Amino acid sequence: MREIHRILDANFNRAREALRVIEDCGRFVLNDPAITAMAKHFRSDLKDLLDELPYDELITSRDTPGDVGRELSSPGEIDRQTVRDVATAACKRLTEALRTIEEYSKILAPKVAESIERMRYDAYTLEQRLTSRFLTAERFAEVKLYAMISASLCRNASLREVARGAVAGGAEALQLREKDSHDDVFLAMAAELRELTDETGKLLIINDRPDIAAIVGADGVHLGQNDLPISEARKLLRPDAIIGRSTHSLAEAKSAINEGADYIAVGPIFETRTKDYPTVGPELLSEIMAEVSLPVVAVGGITSANAGQLVSLGARCVAVCGDICNATNPKAATQALSKLLP
């Protein structure tokens, strides 16, 4: 039995070490409360299962100096280019260790093996959520022109025509922003834009309403300062959902990052009728861009006449509403903006 004890000891250690790597990634890199909690609970459950095994025998069977695999390694073991590489490797190490524990526990403790099997499937879910969060960040990082569509501002064309024009003109993401519409109307508009963005491969973000976003399968939701906490909104959305937060100060931007936002919107940069907050100016945008690593979206009063000013400050993404919705030719208006962006 000593050989089995050594195998179980080594793989319980591997699993716990992998979970610590995953937990720290969720906590310090992704700022994701759900991933952090899942990994933490995993470690606790694993300890409880270890307590059901002959722990003393496992420890005394350990022979690190005599381990023939200690000196064996492959080039891939040290090939880590990004945080995502580190986290992905930890997920693979976790599921492999759990499978080994499951198989060898069948000899010593079949009930432990059954519990480990369930845990292994949960580990696949944890891996999927972690990978989805990294993919989410990568997807939004590609957005340069973020078109905010509001039916009340679409005076020269229908909401669908404006949205189609924005997509054709170069917008990588659409946000449906409806502050006064009834739920049934809001839902119908969201479904219409979801169909359009599915056809064209663009992102659809719903303003304020994670419930509507969940129903139509939107790519994410944008939340204001007084909307749901990000952790609560994530409970309603799919694991790879993008969540942005409006911010009006450096303190609010840092708070949004700690909450787990995937991007932050800063504004209103210029005077606008669509925002209730005082103008913050390009200066705050520059200050926040210098302090944070998340994608930063400049928003509020942005037009083709002033977008270039923000680009010169280093802005990589702007959100535009009136200049597109009010345009007689939304496609041309969007193209004019798109040409100004990096």
Rank of each mutant, 00 (worst) to 15 (best):
M1I: 04
R2G: 02
I7M: 12
L8S: 04
N13L: 09
R14N: 07
E17P: 10
E17Q: 15
V21H: 08
I22D: 09
I22L: 15
E23M: 05
E23A: 05
D32L: 09
T36P: 00
M38Y: 07
H41Y: 06
F42L: 12
L46E: 07
L46K: 10
K47G: 02
L50D: 09
P54Q: 06
E57P: 01
L58S: 09
S61M: 11
P75G: 05
G76K: 10
R80V: 13
A87S: 13
A87H: 02
T88H: 11
A90C: 09
C91D: 06
C91Q: 08
A97Y: 03
T100E: 06
I101V: 14
E102T: 11
E103V: 13
E103H: 11
E103P: 01
Y104M: 10
S105E: 13
S105N: 14
K106Y: 03
L108V: 15
V112T: 15
E114F: 08
M119K: 10
M119P: 02
Y121I: 07
D122T: 08
Y124V: 11
T125H: 14
L126S: 07
E127G: 10
Q128M: 11
S132K: 10
T136W: 04
A137L: 15
R139Y: 05
K144H: 09
A147F: 03
M148P: 00
S152L: 02
R155C: 05
A157H: 15
E161R: 03
G165A: 06
A166T: 03
G169A: 13
E172K: 06
Q175M: 15
K179R: 13
K179M: 06
K179G: 02
D180E: 13
D180F: 08
H182E: 15
D183V: 09
F186C: 02
M189H: 15
A191M: 06
E192A: 11
E192Y: 03
E192D: 14
L196E: 04
E199Y: 05
T200S: 06
K202T: 14
L203I: 13
L203R: 07
L203C: 09
I206V: 15
I206Y: 06
D208P: 00
D211M: 09
I215H: 01
V216W: 09
G217Y: 01
A218Q: 00
D219Y: 01
D219Q: 00
V221Y: 03
D227L: 00
I230V: 14
E232W: 00
L236D: 00
L237D: 00
D240K: 01
I243H: 02
T247Q: 06
S249L: 10
A251G: 06
A251D: 13
A253Y: 07
K254G: 01
S255R: 15
I257P: 04
I257D: 05
I257Q: 08
G260T: 08
G260V: 07
I264H: 04
G267F: 01
P278F: 09
P278Y: 07
T279R: 12
V280S: 04
V280M: 02
L284Q: 12
L285G: 06
I288D: 08
M289G: 09
A290M: 12
E291L: 06
E291D: 12
V296R: 05
A298W: 05
A298V: 04
G301Q: 05
A307K: 07
A307I: 11
Q309A: 15
C317F: 06
C317K: 03
D323V: 03
C325K: 00
A332Q: 14
A333N: 02
A333K: 01
T334D: 10
Q335A: 14
S338I: 05
K339W: 05
K339H: 11
